[in-house]
């Protein structure tokens, strides 16, 4: 059950007139996973989420939610889905209780269980104190929480959150992130953001979209390993750079200053252990060993910068 696939999107494409907002995008979401969607503005994040939530029909491709095809049986598929769009879909003239009761009804919670569902969602999102206030009078942060409560009220297996922390103050951001992480234990969550540290802090997998295509999809752990591209080593009695290059996994070595070296790591290798052993064997006096990782930001910029896109476009044209 742990590996249960909650969302399976195949080859999605979406045209707006003649411009393609999405082309050939596939993604899968498993239970207990938080997938972060990253991308520059206009990359197709929101379009993807709208399609997954059934608010927009794809021009091509198919979406299965919890094994049910969204196009064939929309009502059944949407029942296992909670969606918080960029702009929380609130009715400002209703109170929080009224609104959440309505959302529960809309999502098919039987009347007898609605009060419980509302109470649970309010508790999860910290809305207990404002339950009887009009949504109109709540601060942006609380409104966002009401939106989130609406998305989880029927305990859907799949939750889709489009930039859930936009417009919140730092404390609220932390709270919402903690809430999302918590929800991620028992649900599958797709989250979009353009705040990179947020993705790193919350998500278990990251997917970068650019120009309507997936350009990167990897788990956060793997991303961390992959990204180690150089080591900075401090040796009290260091040899010359040539000797360091002999160690397995080191591609290039250069001396930065007396006793400080930068080693470029061959793709995917991790020479740290071998390096420490060699240092002990040869009595180099290892005092510092630091991996210089490529940050997610660098990966992001590299994959979404103009040159890569231009390259892709040229490839497409060819």
């Amino acid at each position: 059950m742990e590996e249960q696939t909650l969302i399976e999107a195949q080859d999605l494409s979406r045209l707006y007139g003649r411009t393609a907002a999405l082309s050939g995008l596939s993604l899968a979401l498993r239970k207990g996973e938080i997938l972060g969607l990253l991308g520059p503005n206009g990359a197709g994040k929101t379009t993807t989420m709208k399609i997954l939530a059934g608010c927009l029909a794809p021009s091509g491709g198919s979406v299965k939610i919890n094994g049910i095809d969204l196009a064939e049986r929309p009502a059944a598929a949407k029942a296992s889905l909670g969606y918080l769009p960029e702009q929380p879909p609130l009715y400002p003239e209703l109170t929080v209780d009224e609104y959440l009761g309505y959302a529960a009804g809309l999502h098919g919670v039987p009347p007898a269980q609605r009060a419980d569902a509302v109470a649970r969602a309010k508790q999860a999102c910290g809305l207990g104190d404002v339950a009887r206030r009009l949504i109109h009078n709540l601060s942006k942060g609380y409104q966002q929480r009401v939106g989130l409560a609406q998305a989880i009220i029927h305990r859907p297996p799949v939750i889709i959150l489009d930039e859930p922390t936009v417009g919140l103050d730092p404390i609220q951001i932390r709270e919402i992130r903690a809430l999302i992480k918590d929800l991620g234990q028992s649900h599958g969550i797709i989250l979009s953001s353009h705040i990179l540290p947020e993705i790193q802090a919350v998500c278990s997998r990251v997917m970068i979209i650019n120009k309507g295509r997936v350009v990167y999809a990897e788990s956060i752990e793997r991303t961390a390993q992959h990204r180690m591209d150089s080591l900075v080593v401090g040796l009290r009695r260091g040899p010359d750079a040539g000797a360091l290059r002999q160690i397995a996994g080191v591609e290039r070595a250069e001396q930065l200053e007396a006793g400080l070296y930068r080693l470029t790591v061959a793709g995917g290798a991790d020479p740290r252990e071998a390096l420490a052993e060699a240092a002990v064997r040869n009595g180099w006096g290892l005092v510092e060993l630091r991996s210089q990782a490529k940050t997610l930001e660098e990966v992001f910029v590299e994959l979404t910068s103009g040159e890569v896109t231009l390259h892709e476009t040229l490839q497409e044209a060819a």
């Binding site: 939530a53 949407k78 879909p89």
Partner: peptide, 14 residues
């Protein structure tokens, strides 16, 4: 205009 239509469109209601 206010975006609340999404609530209805993403719900199981036809």
């Amino acid at each position: 205009k206010s975006g609340s239509l999404t609530l209805l469109l993403s719900s199981p209601a036809s």
